[in-house]
């Protein structure tokens, strides 16, 4: 596939994206450095487990839905979550691939991207409905929560149409403009929104894994071990 576009769209797809991406990276760098400056609570107790393997175990628990009751009890919700986040990765990936490596976006590859985007679009609609109708979710929801999920859902919807037109050999359409304008907005907006939770995710998971791994609760190898007493 070729990405033959006007100079104006090229400006949006590349220099503008790079600028927005740089801005996002800067904001994230500030956020991360602020967190890294804060010390991790000390652990001077004699450990019963391993903090590093606990942290690794905790970081990868997203791949083990059976680990947490909240996911094992709600496997459908977990599956939605996985599809949604794979779609996020693919959609963002497409904004790089289209201008930088359009040959990768063959009709087959693009169709796979579309499939995930379409599924994520439907999941997004269901998540909006859930947030509006489930009382315990509604009570904790803020405008930011609604805005974030709506924005993502619309982004996936726009993505599906854009990819469909791309497959038809139409790289420059109003939808493509909208797709990249939304991407630009995302890159600038996300550091200030809850969507940036993926930056905090490793911190939260590592904190959890360090504490409870060190105490011998996570990743237990031997179920009969008692700690040290003579």
């Amino acid at each position: 596939m070729e990405n033959k576009v006007s100079y104006a769209l090229y400006i949006l797809q590349e220099p503008v994206q790079y600028l927005a991406l740089s801005f996002m990276a800067l904001m994230y760098a500030i956020k991360i450095s602020q967190l890294l400056k804060k010390p991790f609570p000390p652990e001077r107790a004699e450990l019963k487990g391993d903090r590093v393997s606990g942290a690794l175990h905790s970081l990868t628990n997203v791949l083990r839905p059976w680990d947490m009751e909240s996911t094992s009890k709600h496997l459908y919700f977990y599956t939605e979550f996985m599809i949604f986040h794979v779609a996020v990765a693919l959609t963002i990936g497409s904004t790089f691939l289209i201008p930088l490596a359009p040959q990768v976006m063959t009709p087959t590859v693009t169709a796979v991207f579309m499939l995930f985007m379409a599924a994520a679009f439907l999941i997004g609609l269901r998540r909006i409905y859930r947030r509006l109708t489930v009382p315990e979710i509604r009570i904790i929801s803020t405008p930011d929560d609604y805005f974030a999920i709506t924005l993502m859902t619309v982004f996936f919807g726009v993505g599906v149409v854009t990819m469909w037109l791309w497959i038809q050999g139409r790289p420059e359409t109003g939808w493509m403009w909208l797709f990249f304008l939304m991407t630009t907005f995302f890159l600038i907006y996300v550091p200030f929104s809850k969507i940036s939770h993926y930056v905090l995710y490793p911190f939260g998971r590592v904190n959890f894994g360090m504490i409870f791994g060190g105490r011998g609760i996570l990743n237990r190898q031997n179920r009969n071990v008692t700690w040290d007493p003579k």
Binding site: L35, K73, I140
Partner: peptide, 26 residues
């Protein structure tokens, strides 16, 4: 907020609601 775990825990909630049926109170 100088404690990283406290700071991360305050900033990290995404209101997904996965905790809603895990607490003995709720």
């Amino acid at each position: 907020l100088k404690n990283r775990v406290v700071a991360t825990s305050l900033a990290g909630c995404i209101h997904c609601g996965m905790c809603s049926d895990t607490c003995h109170y709720s």
